[in-house]
């Protein structure tokens, strides 16, 4: 039953919820931003895959007693670069490269935790995160990575666009495509690293794909997509998180469902617009 007792501001009386909504909104925006590159490169599975790879690194760092951020971060970046390199050789497709590298990494992490730690607990934490257990340091980490990502995208905007749209000509025109891809993978790995513990891999995967796909239907301009997608990501994450309090549902699930509802609405609207455009052409 929906509980509305206490008014619309009640959730914000709880610090843990306020922290959760802040981190979810920033993470939604960040994933929405990077999701533009993920979706346009046809690598929608990368978020899911890289978060599995980072899980392997997290497990290995826990077993070896290394700091989580250092161990999982280095592991994630190496996995990302490895995926990029394998995909570039074109012996196998990018989807297969993601599948091989990340599942192997996940399996290794699982085996290490089976042998030395608590596998079940860790897997649940990775899948769903703990958005209501967010600490100020987590907010700071997500905010810092967001600022860092925005600065890098602004600084290398055209190289990123060129290498995404037309890697072959970009290479010939002097853009170091391999370097650009490594940069993108590093940004993705960093994002997953700081958001995995708080929002979980399921939400990361969804927020890397749904807002960007929605934005794609709303604009034909790459530049506009780069601000519409993070806006949708941040808004749906904030609204979904807020709604989850009243609906008494899982925060991750509610955020994904909110983003999906926006996607379906835009999809339906784009369909109507497309059909009316065709009808208009026929009447000319």
């Amino acid at each position: 039953m929906i509980s509305l007792v206490g008014g619309v501001f009640t959730p914000f009386n709880y610090q843990f919820f306020t922290n959760g909504i802040i981190v979810a909104t920033i993470a939604g925006g960040l994933c929405g931003l990077l999701g533009v590159f993920v979706v346009l490169r046809g690598m929608s599975y990368i978020g899911h895959g890289l978060s599995h790879a980072v899980f392997g690194g997290a497990a290995a760092s826990a077993v070896m007693g290394i700091n989580y951020f250092v161990g999982a971060g280095v592991w994630g970046i190496i996995s990302g670069v490895l995926i990029g390199r394998i995909a570039r050789r074109r012996l196998i497709g990018a989807d297969a490269a993601i599948g091989v590298v990340t599942t192997a990494s996940f399996a290794l992490g699982l085996a290490l935790l089976n042998r030395y730690g608590q596998a079940q607990k860790s897997i649940e934490a990775v899948l769903f995160g703990s958005v209501l257990g967010v600490k100020p340091i987590d907010i700071l980490a997500v905010a810092l990575v967001t600022v860092f990502t925005v600065v890098l995208i602004l600084a290398f905007y055209r190289a990123l666009l060129f290498a995404t749209f037309d890697p072959e000509v970009a290479e010939v025109s002097g853009v170091r495509v391999a370097w650009v891809e490594a940069l993108l993978m590093a940004m993705l790995s960093l994002t997953i690293l700081v958001t995995m513990r708080v929002i979980g891999t399921l939400l990361i995967s969804a927020m890397l794909v749904i807002p960007a796909s929605t934005a794609r239907m709303l604009t034909n301009s790459f530049a506009r997509m780069l601000w519409i997608s993070p806006l949708i990501g941040a808004a749906t994450a904030g609204v979904g998180m807020y709604a989850s309090y009243f609906l008494d549902t899982s925060a991750s699930a509610t955020i994904i469902l909110t983003a999906t509802a926006v996607f379906i609405s835009v999809y339906a609207l784009a369909g109507i617009r497309g059909r009316s455009r065709i009808a208009h052409v026929h009447h000319v």
Binding site: L154, A155, Y157, R158, A159, F162, A170, S173, G174, L226
Partner: peptide
């Protein structure tokens, strides 16, 4: 987009 060396920003 081809001017990625001289002009980097959007």
């Amino acid at each position: 987009m081809t001017r990625s060396k001289v002009g980097r920003r959007p």
